[in-house]
């Protein structure tokens, strides 16, 4: 069995909405392993994104434990969580979320810069990653000069360029047409199979579900099934 990267134990996340308490995540226990290409699926409001946010250290648990590479995230300060996100997690968002004043190259290099990588190292890794995601020659384009698919490829490059332990992708195909969605999935599948990058998606896109090697069904904040495809 591959090593565990993420481990959730009896995790609950309760949001207060006015006077009502909402159990966004309810007693979830889950492990994500090295090399997983897993999809958290379920209807809107089922708790997929909340689970992703807890794993990514963007939100804190109400009870239970989230461990990333053995480290309990609830024990970390905000600064330490920033460090974990910077060094061990890659994020891909639904609406790309590139920094508009930066070129494709600079967006992809952003986290490496935060890590303090040298210029040479940064250049080598960014150019290779941009080539891997099929953006060779577009390094100097700004987000508003690229299509949605190209922007999402830059976002994927930004997420993987630091060699994170896991890439968390929240509805990565939701804002692109079906042709682009297929090509993005091809890309992420290739990165998973050839480079061993671990992906965890939150999605209700059937195309993603069809490609995923593991499907985790979420409903009302609970995991109702966890199926590994053959």
């Amino acid at each position: 069995m591959e090593s565990e990267i993420v481990q959730l134990r009896n995790v609950r996340k309760i949001y207060q909405q006015g006077e009502v308490q909402v159990n966004a995540v309810d007693e979830v226990s889950l492990s994500i392993h090295q090399g997983d290409f897993a999809a958290l699926c379920g209807p809107s409001g089922s708790g997929k994104t909340s689970i992703l946010n807890l794993i990514g250290g963007l939100d804190t648990v109400s009870s239970g434990q989230v461990r990333l590479e053995g480290v309990d995230l609830s024990t970390l300060s905000n600064t330490a969580l920033s460090e974990v996100r910077k060094n061990r997690i890659g994020f891909v968002f639904q609406s790309y979320n590139l920094i508009p004043v930066m070129t494709a190259y600079e967006n992809a290099a952003f986290v490496l810069d935060l890590q303090g990588a040298t210029k040479t190292e940064c250049h080598e890794r960014v150019m290779k990653t941009l080539a891997d995601v099929g953006l060779q020659g577009l390094e100097n384009r700004r987000p508003d000069e690229m299509s949605g698919g190209q922007q999402q490829r830059v976002a994927i490059a930004r997420a993987i360029v630091t060699h994170p332990a896991i890439v968390l992708a929240d509805e990565p195909t939701a804002n692109v047409d079906s042709h682009t969605a297929e090509s993005l999935l091809d890309l992420m599948q290739t990165l998973n199979e050839q480079h061993g990058i671990t992906f965890l998606f939150s999605t209700h896109d059937q195309r993603v579900i069809d490609r995923a090697k593991r499907i985790i069904q979420v409903q009302d904040g609970q995991i109702v099934s966890d199926e590994h495809k053959a």
Binding site: G56, L58, N78, T79, S82, E83, R85, K86, N87, F91, F93, N97, I99, P100, F110, V111, L114, Q115, R158
Partner: peptide, 16 residues
């Protein structure tokens, strides 16, 4: 705000 949220999500510290 959203952009800052993304920056923090990818590892930028509040100090930065």
């Amino acid at each position: 705000r959203r952009e800052f949220g993304v920056m923090m999500a990818v590892g930028m510290s509040p100090k930065n």
